[in-house]
Amino acid sequence: MTKRQKIVFFSVVAAVVALLVVGIVLTNGLYERDATIQETMKDAILHGNDKISLFGLPVNPGLISAYIVTGLLLLFAAIVRIFVIPKFRYVPGKFQTMLEQAVGMFDGLARGNSPHKNGVLGAYIFAAGAYIFFGTLFELFGIPWITINGESVTLPAPLSDINGAIAMGGFTYLFILIGGIAANRGRGLLRGLKEFSLPISMSFRLFGALLSGMLVTELVYYYFALSFVVPVIVGILFTVLHAVIQAYVLSMLTSMYYGEVTEPPVKKTKRSKKIKRGSEVTV
């Protein structure tokens, strides 16, 4: 690229940016906000006014997100199952390597943390990890949806809905409890019940982490001045980071607790207290 071409290129880019900024500023006054930041954030947490109709049932937007994410993941899995897996080779290509790495990572996590019983655990944390990761990334797309009140709402991450987080945490606890009972009967049940705080901690950890990300994003988008450059960092970097972190944390915790409740009991060896009288020494 010659010097003249560089000057032309940067001039065009600068002109386009300037025109866009002018357009954004001029069109800002056309849309009046119908809620304060407090109301917006309260709605983001409680979903009091932005219910969506699901076959006539008013539900939070997070549930719609959950169904869309599940649908997309199952569609992807079905396509892979039908078109890709039958063509798997012993020397894998890039996509096959990626799939094998994902499955192998969760399988390894299950085997490492629960060496005694891990048949379904690997599949469970694989599904949970995929759901949390892709569910969190889903909010990046900002898919709009119409609420019951006729307003537009952006679909959030499924687990930023407290009902979704409680379902995930509670179901995971139930899975651990059933695993413990299957492996160690009554002892497994007691070990599971001992961790009674687990569903609450898991649920609210997920909810808190994902909601905080969403609130920060809401906050950033609420103010006009923050709508340049900052969303790139907040929206993408933070979302990707906590998608990875939360998926890893829940998978790791699930496999660790599952390993703990399914661990076979250690038999204590009884020490012989019998003392031979003949061997006693009298002074």
Binding site: L74, A77, I85, F126, A127, A130
Partner: peptide, 29 residues
């Protein structure tokens, strides 16, 4: 705004996802 019905709907959604991913992706791979 905790709603037991929606919690069960989320749980159902996750069970379907878990079963689907297990049979379509995890087990064959």
């Amino acid at each position: 705004n905790i709603d037991w019905q929606q919690i069960l709907l989320h749980a159902l959604n996750f069970v379907i996802l878990f079963a689907g991913l297990y049979f379509l992706l995890y087990r064959p791979v």
